[in-house]
Design a binder for these strands. Sequence first.
DNA 1: ACTTAAAATGGTTACGTATTCATTTTTTTA
DNA 2: TAAAAAAATGAATACGTAACCATTTTAAGT
Lengths: 331, 331
Amino acid sequence: MVSSKDVAKYAGVSQTTVSRVLNTPELVKPKTVEKVMQAIEELNYIPNDVARSLVQKKTGIITLISGPLHNPFFVDTTTAIVNYVNARGYKVNVYFGTEDNLDSIYNSVLETRADAIILSSMLYEDDLFFKLEKRGIPFIMYNRKHQENRYFVEIDNVEAGYIATNHILTLGHHDICWIGGPHEISTFYERYNGFKNALKDSGIGINTVPAFFTNTKKDDIERIFEEILKLPTRPTAICAATDAIAIEILNLCLERGFHVPKDFNVIGIDNVELSKHHSIALTTVGLASEKNLGFIAIEKLFEVMEKKSTCIQQTESVKLFPRNTTCKKIN
Amino acid sequence: MVSSKDVAKYAGVSQTTVSRVLNTPELVKPKTVEKVMQAIEELNYIPNDVARSLVQKKTGIITLISGPLHNPFFVDTTTAIVNYVNARGYKVNVYFGTEDNLDSIYNSVLETRADAIILSSMLYEDDLFFKLEKRGIPFIMYNRKHQENRYFVEIDNVEAGYIATNHILTLGHHDICWIGGPHEISTFYERYNGFKNALKDSGIGINTVPAFFTNTKKDDIERIFEEILKLPTRPTAICAATDAIAIEILNLCLERGFHVPKDFNVIGIDNVELSKHHSIALTTVGLASEKNLGFIAIEKLFEVMEKKSTCIQQTESVKLFPRNTTCKKIN
DNA sequence: ACTTAAAATGGTTACGTATTCATTTTTTTA
DNA sequence: TAAAAAAATGAATACGTAACCATTTTAAGT
């Protein structure tokens, strides 16, 4: 492979000059620039970005640890993040984290010289946070936060849970239930708290309301849905902690011949793009602004990288998006 | 940042030995290994993967140029590809190519020392093919092919177009139409040929059947749908060249109060995961085997990288997946 | 024309690792 | 116990670039 040294020799200049032609051509005599450019052309020279990274101590790479794309939330955020990063001239190393592969992903990520890391896989109490701090690479979490309460962008999850539940209650549903996720994840913990707050404010005892917690895998949600069907009093409304869960519930309902919202009201949280599709038309709670959480997070991460910000602790406000999976209770 | 030299000094050995401890510990006396490992631990040493890449002339990075994720086909393939690559211990640089950013993506990609490239953005006549060959990095295309007819994995697109159209015709629909994409893309060109073949075999003149071609953007599909609604004889069935188009048509139908399949039959091609959702239940044509096209392609790419294969030209057979968006024509 | 400043270029080094080759140490064998 | 073989270690170098400092060339000012 041809190097800048080869170009230099061919053009009859020093390697330094070749480097300058590519990086600071204004410091080189136009005639020399031309000579070098021609050599580059003729030899088909392409600068070695690895060598450049080594000497400059930056790779131009951002690591993204996303959740899997079968969750439509991560479709939206991954799109926003990857496009933003590339538009800024950086590259993105993408990982899709699940229970099974997270350890291996963390190993890989911690050994990689990325310029920054953006991730959604953090638990509320997670050693990873400290490993990342120790590693010294700027990082930001989106959609989840760590108990250290730093470097995150989230929606107001408590409020989201509250609004969703309140919407359902206001529609006259009394027999409702909750499907959430593991409480080691701040998102699920807080949304469930919002759910409980809404019940409390409506004078409903939390113990009378069934709540289920899944690791958000398809099979797991199905198992829970079966349990719901076996409940002594079948709920008329299902509050899902995420649109991903809600949309899977929709699927399970239709699969079994139920009608939504006639047989079941379903509400989610996140307002993912897919929820807007008229075949889905999921009632949900999401960001009040037009922006996407991934976009907000990656924008902030660049601010941190550029030392414009030091610490990010951002909680975005939310609102209800009423669509067709909820309606007044039919008596 | 602490280097292997620092570790060496701290442990009282040479840098060579440190390198050996990490890469070929079986060549080092156990006692020395222990000594070095302790130094690594205490100094919190992390090998510099950039320096390693430079000397080894491989980066462990695969570049993926996918289409955008609002197309569910790319959700499926990106998932398969990223997960496969990571499982093999490689990293993935991901790009989502659209009309607007492809040039900039190609510039970035061609200047990057990736070990291989997997892409879906190739046109049938595309200079990129030759640039990639010149670059000397192994590459593979999925879902599209180049006129040079090398390094690709696709489904049998002609057959897919044929099967889809034939299904519609067999259901008794005479007033049908086609929504495809630009014919510079092999996929669209071939699927449309399948469509034409089916018409011909049914004795229908191709000129009597409306066909529309879009760049598959949302607005564009909407514009076409409006045109379809204005047609002198409104078709009872719409053949879409991809599930992405079909699902968007579904959306537009429902948005306007039409019922599918009562008012319009809709059929797609690709059998994307989303089409299986019971809210969508899209009739479509897809891979006969369980595998995902992205998975097949990335598997093949690794074969090429490992010199097990030299050239890949793979066309996978397809079959019909009848679901709820098509039905016998109601007279 | 002569000095001085500015512009242009080149030589050398650092980045941090793996690799090659040489040397030392240890073990095995006769 | 000496010689030979094997194991363990180290010194030096290459990878390809950018950056630093030094030097040469050109232009400007008097």
